[in-house]
């Protein structure tokens, strides 16, 4: 099979680039140092297209398309930033901040949080829409980790890494709409989970301070999701 037909030429923000046909717009853009904000996406995990921050304009498409799940195509004309897209992204980010209780200043992830970083990157200095202040629990029953639903953005990275990489399927999502909650097993305390292997991958991939190690408090929390792509390759390589 020749590599030739697998190359697509497209433009991103007017710049002509080439990409492999199996690449998403996001992958192609990042390869060419074009920044597209994401939250649910994480290299090494399946895509869910849920955070809506990577929406881009594709000429000819009726709607904005999520860059993470849209494959490149020949002649595609992609715009990753425009006043309209930026405005939408900012508002989406505001919705994230308003729906739960993200108190950055006292969060374990302060300074190491993808949501916080996004607010900086997108220039979101304040939230125009009213905060909801839901009452949400903290589950500290696990000996090593804590889940604080106040800080969860429902990106489902924990659910995916637990299912796709660790294979434990401990994490899931319950409820729906604004009542959605990530859970372990039958919503038991995490410490009582029968399936959790305590591998801690969920903590490492969590973009915010929702999942954290009990010892990483103060200003010390650092997440390390870099291991994922390697693990994925290892796993896939092992398969017959």
């Amino acid at each position: 099979m020749s590599a030739e037909p697998n190359v697509r030429t497209l433009t991103i923000n007017g710049e002509e680039i080439s990409a492999r046909s199996d690449q998403s717009i996001l992958e192609a853009a990042r390869e060419h140092n074009v920044e597209i904000p994401t939250l649910c996406h994480l290299e090494g995990l399946s895509e869910v297209g849920a955070c809506r921050l990577c929406l881009v304009e594709v000429k000819g498409a009726r709607r904005l398309l999520p860059a993470c799940v849209t494959q490149v195509a020949e002649g595609m004309e992609v715009t990753t930033h425009s006043p309209k897209i930026d405005r939408y992204r900012t508002m989406i980010l505001e919705m994230y901040f308003a729906e739960r209780n993200h108190v950055c200043s006292v969060c374990v992830a302060n300074g190491n949080c993808e949501l916080q970083d996004l607010s900086l990157k997108l220039g979101m200095t304040h939230v125009e829409i009213p905060y909801q202040y839901p009452q949400l629990p903290v589950d500290a029953s696990h000996p090593r980790f804590t889940v604080d639903h106040n800080r969860c953005v429902l990106c489902t990275r924990c659910v995916r890494v637990c299912s796709e990489i660790e294979g434990a399927n401990t994490w899931g999502v319950m409820g729906r709409g604004a009542q959605s909650l990530v859970i372990t097993d039958l919503k038991q305390p995490w410490g009582d989970s029968e399936t959790c292997t305590s591998c801690g991958k969920c903590v490492q991939v969590c973009p915010t301070g929702a999942l954290f190690e009990k010892t990483s408090v103060g200003n010390k929390t650092r997440k390390h999701p870099e291991f994922l792509p390697y693990l994925r390759i290892m796993r896939e390589g092992e398969q017959p």
């Binding site: 659910v159 409820g175 859970i183 039958l186 919503k187 029968e194």
Partner: peptide, 25 residues
């Protein structure tokens, strides 16, 4: 109830978290 969900989930080999997720959805 929980025992029922657990019984069904284990019988069908559905992860507990997914079964609970479905029930509450």
């Amino acid at each position: 109830d929980e025992p029922a969900i657990k019984f069904v989930a284990q019988s069908l080999r559905v992860p507990l978290s997914q079964a609970y997720g479905v029930v509450t959805f």
